[in-house]
Design a protein around this nucleic acid. Sequence first.
DNA 1: CATGAATGAGCATTCATTCAT
DNA 2: GATGAATGAATGCTCATTCAT
Lengths: 228, 228, 228, 228
Amino acid sequence: MTATSSTSPKSPARTVATKRERDPVAAKQALIAAAVAEFASKGFAGARVDEIAAAAGVNKQLVYHYFDSKQGLYLVALESVYAEIREKEQKLTLNELEPLEAMKQLVAFSFDYLAEHPEFIALLADENRSHGANLHESERLQKMHSPFIEMLEATLERGVAAGVFRPDFDAINLYISIAGISYFFFSNNHTLSAIFGKALDARGALLQRRRHVIEFAINALRPDKDVA
Amino acid sequence: MTATSSTSPKSPARTVATKRERDPVAAKQALIAAAVAEFASKGFAGARVDEIAAAAGVNKQLVYHYFDSKQGLYLVALESVYAEIREKEQKLTLNELEPLEAMKQLVAFSFDYLAEHPEFIALLADENRSHGANLHESERLQKMHSPFIEMLEATLERGVAAGVFRPDFDAINLYISIAGISYFFFSNNHTLSAIFGKALDARGALLQRRRHVIEFAINALRPDKDVA
Amino acid sequence: MTATSSTSPKSPARTVATKRERDPVAAKQALIAAAVAEFASKGFAGARVDEIAAAAGVNKQLVYHYFDSKQGLYLVALESVYAEIREKEQKLTLNELEPLEAMKQLVAFSFDYLAEHPEFIALLADENRSHGANLHESERLQKMHSPFIEMLEATLERGVAAGVFRPDFDAINLYISIAGISYFFFSNNHTLSAIFGKALDARGALLQRRRHVIEFAINALRPDKDVA
Amino acid sequence: MTATSSTSPKSPARTVATKRERDPVAAKQALIAAAVAEFASKGFAGARVDEIAAAAGVNKQLVYHYFDSKQGLYLVALESVYAEIREKEQKLTLNELEPLEAMKQLVAFSFDYLAEHPEFIALLADENRSHGANLHESERLQKMHSPFIEMLEATLERGVAAGVFRPDFDAINLYISIAGISYFFFSNNHTLSAIFGKALDARGALLQRRRHVIEFAINALRPDKDVA
DNA sequence: CATGAATGAGCATTCATTCAT
DNA sequence: GATGAATGAATGCTCATTCAT
């Protein structure tokens, strides 16, 4: 990666002293990206600082320079995956859609995001095994409130008002249920495939699951009857 | 746990107690129990053979004597937690209940089991991070077919026939959805608590979730309308 | 090996109580044979008691029962290979041959024995690395005087008297030289093969070496001149 | 040995001495020297990485840093002893001597080198027990062709041409014989001493053997007769 | 900032040996 | 005697982290 190229070792005029041969920001980003990948595939304990540095193409010392410790790097990696999903969530604009369609998009989004970000799931799993210790430590993470839950709440209310959603569900439980039907499929894809003897990571199974998830969630939300 | 059971010192007065109750089966069980706990709380890579042996109250070498390697012990630990849930599943007798009630019990069971067995979730998570590698290796695990899915299928069919369940869902997707709404709540309890700023592991939150889960699932299963 | 067969567990009359289900002598022999092989191929430190017992088809405990320790077994193994060569040496009857022919046979014997007993060389090498520690410990080994050296001495004297051997060599130095030209070829066969890029363990190389060895030794022994 | 050399503390007054002289080359050399000694006296399997590092006065991890594994260190140790003898051999200049004298020097050299380098013998022995496995692996070792054999061949040819050596011996066999009469004396010094009840490692025995070795070899090389 | 060297604590695993049955 | 269980002291090797340049 960030190779040693970058020419000009001793340029006659070192105008900008702050920016030397390497780009600190790029190095940092490379480390975080490598960390996310390594922590996701090996877990915190299984991940190796050496390999993260090597994968990022930087010296191991930089890890300690920038992040103090393996733990520190893990924290930033965690923040980075959270930041990314929050950013994606921001882009959802549902207020103009009618409740049913908006809800479908929310369900679809939570499915699609997980489908494309297995590292998010892996990091979450490790974080939960350690009782969310890092989450509690990070102030930044605390502040990254999810707009998703608010959109969901707004959409839910609109739908209830419009009579297309049943009023029994609170937003948090609904969120967990909607996320859960997608999350479990991805988080446990391998064990489920083994148990059912069916390749649930195949393209077909994925698309089929996506349809089911939306249908299942929407149906659960439907009001009891269209009482006359 | 630490096999302190083992009643009956045989002779009422044993002047010099044998240093250790020589009981291979107990030692093995103690190791497995300790392994389940350690692997669940630290993950495979984070778990320490030393600590497992210490927790089991046996010599570390016995791990290798009985299980060949840390990996071997992990495999048996995994099998043991699977065996336990399969055993519990066997005890469910739903054929005499009417479909709706049977389905409620299935949903409740999948919630209650996870509530009481956080180590099951933790081991599953680690296993999925490694792409179910151990699951694939173990023949015993392959043979531990879940009766749950069959019960679910039978119940689903009965309910569809009786007109109380919609016919659109296949059993596998339904299973994943039902399991998912419970699983995600427990597997991600800590991160969810942090995000929502709400103690989701509190007794009240648990009971409330349980009610929601059943209601959500049952509702999703309801047929489209009671068309006249 | 020494299988569990051996029938008749509870014969009505256990006349000979000393000989039970197994044959202690056979077990001991099997252990020694296995030990010779294992120690020869792995060295003392590299040899594994477990594997020796397994190869002998007996329980590991027997090693300690019969030989006290790994070291004890090694000692007996060493004695056994010495005993074997001494026994073979005993069978040489050279007094009736004329000195030259007798000497040729001595040289040939020392070559042939080594050719057929690589384990002897291997054990000697390990023993010498540890400064012959075991040799010094064993009284039995001390007593196993080699008849070879005496035969050599007698033959040498006869030849000198007959004018066919030069008188300058003492028997011990001669013995070492004769043994050395064969021993080095076998003991260092692999490194020599590597250095010379030639398979010195091939049948042809062996026969050629045998001829050379005899010729070289006999020639060295020839008196200075047939001075008139 | 323990790299205490390293003169020059540069600045005359260094208030706080650096904890350890940071000198990779010295550390490496110290490790190799310690490895040669340890492997020679204990064999590969008996040698302890801990003790090698301790003897070299460096951290154990450096073994793995520089040599990857115990095996890797062993290989380098082996290469180092080979390199040393090759270097010594290079210094022999025999072309100007007459064949007989040159041959005497060759024989004497092969005796003297072994006399002074018991570790060479010990490492060779272990290497041969493992069928020269390491020798085959090392490219560097393959390339360290011995000039000795070529000198021997040249000297032999010159002597044959001059009529002072018999023409029957090929250089390889001759090399093995010459090396063998010295090697065996040293390699098996302890067992020979035990068998003969004579301290063959004593100064006197050594000198006497040296004389014998030269005489024996030269005599073996003499042509059949000074035929008139 | 960058780099290789160095450290120390720890980790899975091995092994000769002993114990209990 | 025979067997599996058990032990404790290692043993080769790893890893996060720090140092020196």
